[in-house]
């Protein structure tokens, strides 16, 4: 076994062999899924709880499907974070889940580090399904698998991550994964949406799409949430689209065979134009969703084996 952790809380800190192992296993699950076969005995008798403190249809469904295809008993729990004391809910819920003998705990939370806090309190393997603006490791893995299958490799590529990097856990996980495997990563966006010290994570920083996309093999767009406009980080959606929204004209700055990605859900006409998002050959957006299930099966499979574990 190459994967030596009990949990999957972050991409940062994983080694290239650990990432490589998860991607290879995920690749084999793509074939299995396409053949229509299942492996319902692998996680038989294991309990997977999807604990979502933040709304997410896509990620939750993807984990649910992955768990069911491997034969796990899957339970979905949605907990409203609007209740008075988020932290109390979090740890009380952890105690409850522990008493239920849950094996795999998938957590989404609007606070950075919430899965780390839970991981210290439960016996289950914790999988971070997105925490605040920290990390979204399975998204980065599925993005890597998508790229690898289309480009034939996941090293030596130039990847431009564009838009609201400041609030993006997807961007952070992708930066860690792509730089760990030896790709050149750029971030492109207005200075108000790029976090301080981002260059120290090993990326090049660009503020305009022309120079940022030049020579890029992959253009990864990020979602811009509407409330960023009201908080004064960007004056308006139309100005944002004019300068940082991906349309055919801006895509032309990238390599001719550059591929388009987006973690979804998209704000069409804000960060991405429909003609580009739905491009028949260059958009990977639908493929990303398919890879999501395979990657999550690989993660559940790996963590449930738990051998070679270097648990502290």
């Amino acid at each position: 076994m190459f994967y030596r952790q009990k949990h999957l809380l972050a991409i940062e800190g994983l080694t290239p062999p650990e990432i490589g192992h998860l991607l290879e296993l995920a690749d084999s699950y793509v074939l299995l899924n396409r053949s229509g076969k299942t492996q319902r005995d692998l996680l038989r008798g294991r309990t997977l709880i999807n604990l979502f403190f933040e709304d997410s249809t896509r990620t939750r469904t993807s984990f649910e499907l992955a768990g069911k295809r491997l034969g796990a008993d899957v339970i979905n729990m949605s907990v409203s974070t609007s209740s008075v004391n988020k932290g109390e809910t979090l740890l009380d819920t952890a105690a409850t889940l522990n008493a239920m003998q849950c094996d795999l705990l998938v957590v989404r939370h609007d606070q950075s580090g919430a899965p780390n806090l839970l991981a210290r309190k439960v016996d289950a393997s914790v999988i971070n399904a997105g925490d605040g603006t920290h990390e979204h490791p399975t998204q980065a893995l599925l993005d890597a698998l998508t790229i690898k299958r289309r480009k034939g490799r996941i090293e030596g590529l130039t990847v431009a991550i564009c838009g609201d990097v400041l609030h993006s856990r997807v961007a952070r996980s992708n930066i860690h994964l792509l730089t760990t495997l030896g790709n050149r990563v750029r971030v492109v966006g207005p200075p108000t949406l790029l976090p301080a010290g981002i260059a120290d994570l090993g990326v090049s920083v660009f503020h305009d799409m022309k120079s940022g996309l030049e020579g890029a093999d992959i253009v990864m767009m990020l979602r811009l949430q509407k409330e960023r406009m009201t908080r004064g980080l960007v004056p308006s959606a139309r100005e944002y689209f004019r300068f940082w929204g991906l349309d055919a004209a801006k895509l032309a700055y990238a390599n001719d065979d550059a591929l388009i990605m987006h973690p979804g859900p998209m704000n069409r006409g804000v960060e991405i134009d429909s003609a580009v998002a739905d491009h028949p050959t260059r958009s990977l957006i639908k493929e990303q969703v398919e890879m999501g299930v395979a990657v999550r099966m690989a993660v559940l499979d790996t963590l449930s084996r738990g051998d070679g574990r270097n648990d502290v």
């Binding site: 940062e12 950075s112 580090g113 925490d131 605040g132 603006t133 920290h134 990390e135 856990r169 952070r172 976090p195 301080a196 010290g197 981002i198 120290d200 994570l201």
Partner: peptide
């Protein structure tokens, strides 16, 4: 604010 806060995804204070 800076590299450390950015890695942890924590809102920064300059």
């Amino acid at each position: 604010e800076g590299e450390w806060a950015t890695r942890l995804g924590l809102p920064g204070i300059p």
